[in-house]
Computed example of a mutant assay.
Amino acid sequence: MRRPAPPAPHGTAPHRTAPHRTARHRIAPHRAPGGSAGGPPLRLLIATVVQEVRTAGDAPSLEAALVAWRARVTARGLAMLKAAALLSDYAGARAG
């Protein structure tokens, strides 16, 4: 576990003095697919989508594939939201 930074002495700058833009660029790779947080590289994700589009065939087949993909992504997102709510309830119950 990471220790919190010690408080800055009175009259000095806080421990983080990097401009917002610099901090954002330092954090962004962790959030990007294939960043240091893990996951496949972005080029692999793009290649997968391009391959799916090429193999879908005609427009109705592509539409069906996109509808199915959207349903899977929606179900995954809703499951993550439900898990977050359950975790929040659990953490709240343990805290007080």
Rank of each mutant, 00 (worst) to 15 (best):
R26G: 05
A79H: 15
A56G: 04
I27Y: 08
E63H: 15
P33N: 05
R24T: 10
Y90I: 10
G35V: 05
A8Q: 04
R72H: 10
V49D: 10
L86Q: 13
P9G: 01
P7V: 04
T22M: 03
P41C: 00
R31L: 15
A91I: 12
H30I: 08
H25Q: 14
T17P: 00
L42M: 11
A32N: 09
P40T: 09
H20P: 10
T74P: 02
A28Q: 12
L87F: 03
P9K: 01
E52Y: 03
A32L: 14
D58T: 06
Q51A: 15
P4Y: 05
A68Q: 12
H20V: 14
L45R: 15
G57M: 03
R21S: 13
L42Y: 10
A18L: 12
P40W: 08
M80Q: 13
R16F: 05
A28R: 13
A47Q: 10
A47F: 01
T55L: 11
A68N: 10
M80E: 13
L45W: 14
T12G: 00
A91S: 10
R31D: 06
H25L: 12
P6S: 02
L42R: 15
H10N: 07
K82S: 09
T12F: 06
R43G: 04
P40C: 08
P33A: 11
A65N: 03
P19Y: 00
R21A: 14
H20C: 08
V50Y: 00
H20M: 09
E52T: 08
A79I: 00
A47W: 02
P41M: 03
A8M: 02
G39V: 02
R43K: 12
V49F: 03
A93Y: 00
L78S: 08
M1H: 09
L44E: 15
R16A: 02
P60V: 05
V73R: 15
R70I: 03
Y90M: 11
H30N: 05
R26K: 13
G35H: 01
R72G: 00
A32C: 05
G38S: 08
R76V: 01
A65K: 00
M1W: 06
Q51G: 08
D89N: 07
T48I: 02
L86V: 03
S88R: 14
Q51N: 11
R3Y: 06
R43Y: 09
A75K: 11
T55D: 07
P6I: 01
A23N: 07
D58S: 09
R94D: 02
A32V: 08
L78C: 05
Q51I: 03
L78W: 08
E52F: 01
G96T: 13
L62M: 04
S88L: 11
G38K: 09
L87V: 03
V53Q: 07
L81F: 03
G77P: 00
T48W: 07
G11E: 05
P19G: 13
V73G: 00
G35M: 00
T74C: 08
D58F: 04
T74F: 06
A37L: 02
A18T: 07
E63T: 13
